[in-house]
């Protein structure tokens, strides 16, 4: 049994379903990546896992516990953390305060976790007194990931973390994400940059129109001629 098992999810925002029998799983300390064409329901699948979207069939289990009916806030308390694609920092409060707010639910000493986030993203330590809104796109993504890590999650979900950042920053961010996974945290990530993302993925999901089209290891998907032809540009 996987650490995260979101099985047979069917649902959408209104009357029409976007997801159809979609299954996503993630193992402990591994990186799972959802890729696919525009409008395939990648972000929707992630939102369904996080409880931001009603699914009328299927279930979401975290560490064996059924959390299908829980609100996103309650899922945070269960060890999920979500980094939205946009508006993912508090712009007019400082970097350090952003991290503090990430740990809002925690009653214990957060200084050690904050030190770990600063170790992971050293630039944030230098900029900790600066408002998050004044940082560059890449640095802001680091704040966003750092904020999510402050709850000491067991599953970190990232919605297109590299959207709008330069290729160099993207590589850098992926390196950090691998580092986070090595510390034992499961990662579920939606990515536009399919090839690079599958490169670091232990498991990849290719979604098309809300359905699982291909599911395999990242390596195997990259080698699959059909996936290459249709989704990776040859």
């Amino acid at each position: 049994m996987s650490f995260l098992t979101a099985e047979n999810m069917t649902g959408g925002y209104g009357a029409a379903d976007i997801l159809h029998d979609c299954t996503i799983t993630a193992e402990e300390g591994e990186i799972a990546v959802i890729v696919g064409p525009n409008g395939a329901g990648k972000s929707t699948a992630m939102k369904a896992v996080f409880g931001m979207l009603d699914i009328h069939t299927g279930s979401v289990k975290l560490d064996g516990e059924d959390i299908t009916k829980l609100s996103p806030q309650a899922r945070v308390a269960k060890g999920m953390a979500f980094v939205p694609q946009t508006n993912n920092v508090f712009p007019t409060i400082s970097v350090e305060e952003n991290l503090e707010m990430g740990a809002f639910l925690r009653e214990d000493d957060i200084s050690k976790t904050m030190e770990q986030v600063y170790e992971l993203f050293p630039i944030l330590k230098d900029k900790r007194r600066q408002n998050a809104g004044e940082l560059s796109g890449g640095q802001r993504q680091q704040v966003a990931v750092g904020r999510a890590l402050m709850t000491q999650p067991k599953l970190l979900m990232l919605d297109e973390p590299t959207a709008g950042v330069s290729p160099i920053v993207m590589d850098e961010l992926f390196d950090r994400i691998i580092e986070v996974a090595r510390s034992g945290i499961s990662i579920l990530m939606v990515e536009q940059n399919a090839r690079q993302a599958l490169n670091i993925a232990d498991k990849g999901y290719v979604l098309v129109q809300g359905r699982n089209k291909f599911t395999d290891t990242g390596e195997a998907l990259l080698a699959n001629p059909e996936v290459r032809k249709s989704f990776l540009g040859g």
């Binding site: 409060i93 305060e97 503090e100 809002f104």
Partner: peptide
């Protein structure tokens, strides 16, 4: 204060404040 900071955070970005458990 923690409460004061959470007020500023909420004012900044309501959705993210909710995600953070405020």
């Amino acid at each position: 204060t923690r409460t004061g900071k959470s007020m500023r955070a909420f004012s900044d970005n309501e959705d993210l404040a909710l995600l953070s458990g405020i």
